[in-house]
Design a protein around this nucleic acid. Sequence first.
DNA 1: CGGTCGTTTGAAGTGGTTCAAGCCTTGTGG
DNA 2: CCACAAGGCTTGAACCACTTCAAACGACCG
Lengths: 235, 235
Amino acid sequence: MPQLATHMSDIDPAFVGITRAGGLSASAAANLRRLVGPGERYPAAAVLNSIAPAPRMEWIVSGWACERRVLPDGRRQIFSFSVPGDVVLSRPVSANSRCSVVAITIIECLDVAQMLGRARDVDRPELWRAMTRALSLADERRYDTIVRLGQRSAVQRVADLLIELHDRLDQIGMTDRNGFHLPLTQEHLADALGLSLVHVNRSLKALRLKGLASFRFGRVSDLDRAGLEALCSAN
Amino acid sequence: MPQLATHMSDIDPAFVGITRAGGLSASAAANLRRLVGPGERYPAAAVLNSIAPAPRMEWIVSGWACERRVLPDGRRQIFSFSVPGDVVLSRPVSANSRCSVVAITIIECLDVAQMLGRARDVDRPELWRAMTRALSLADERRYDTIVRLGQRSAVQRVADLLIELHDRLDQIGMTDRNGFHLPLTQEHLADALGLSLVHVNRSLKALRLKGLASFRFGRVSDLDRAGLEALCSAN
DNA sequence: CGGTCGTTTGAAGTGGTTCAAGCCTTGTGG
DNA sequence: CCACAAGGCTTGAACCACTTCAAACGACCG
């Protein structure tokens, strides 16, 4: 029995995610399910980066992670958040790639190369394609991140990020009627959005007062997607 | 005779660039030289994006280009600048990828797929690897762009960008003793750095007064690389 | 029940934007 | 060779967004 998750439904979001993002066929998805053996577990705040010479590809099965860089002066930039079903590259932190993958909650993930090793020959190409596609989707998102930082005001940045996270979580069935669980601190948001913690707080308050979204106690609720979107493209 | 360039030395930077960035062997580089037939020419301000369903990979032989997105409200974000030797993806501008490649100067470039079609079978894998490597180097740079926008002040952003461009041009032999030719307007810089044109101007003035770099008449001169770097990591 | 981490609020300062006008440089046509 | 137009650069002044510093409050955990 896999030690990976107590109930199969716990890891459903990851399967839905990689199936949709990677364009897996039903049969390949079913075979993938069989490949999921015991994976790696990391506690919150663990840094995944390998010391191996080559980057390692990891498929996130459950939990939240982020890609980030810590600057010499201690400031941090978060490049992206990763949710179940996402694929991340955990690379050696070298001069040219000073980007770490850090667990935000407890996470479970699988080394893609190892997993493919256990796959049947016929399934391997499709699974590999799915994983690399998921990875390049994350690359595409970086354009949006740049626009967010370069062209948006504080409230818009927060709104824009909430929309992105909502949409991604919605895809994998991790939202409910009016919101979703979001295990981030306001400091995480600040690091991702290039804002001070204080101003993130004020921006969240502004959104709450406008009735567009409310982020409290690790949960986003009363999310008005259309309203948030209008706010982002305003002005 | 190739209509591509009047003198072979005009396209040298592109060869040096792809050779270093892609890790080409001497023989493959020599063979590449032979493959360079008449390429595509675009005038300044031309938009390269293909209407084909799949993205097209273009190798820039001469001239400057940029990747950018225009927002509904007319604001523009420039994601990156491309110089000779760089490889860009010219994709259909769709809902998920609203990123255009735009010529800044007159540019000459080659469709990579076509070029590989003319290559000898033995050279093809190495050439393809070189092109995709150059492409992923550009992807890596996006992390730096995000840090620049998220964590730096205006003067630091300008300084940081000047360092990046200097280093890249230096690699391909397009710098001289104390500076380099930079065919951008201050508005280009503003669009790339998420700043107003006016403030870019003031930041450039500040750099000039500090004796760190002077950008005038399409040329960067008196560039003090160490000084600029110190400025960027200060505070 | 006390300590720690995260959130909230206020007040003051600063960095960047906007608007508006003038200048410089380059290219074009007489 | 000069005149003029157009695009790009420069500067000033007022305004606003965001930061910083400082302090208090709240929730969760042993």
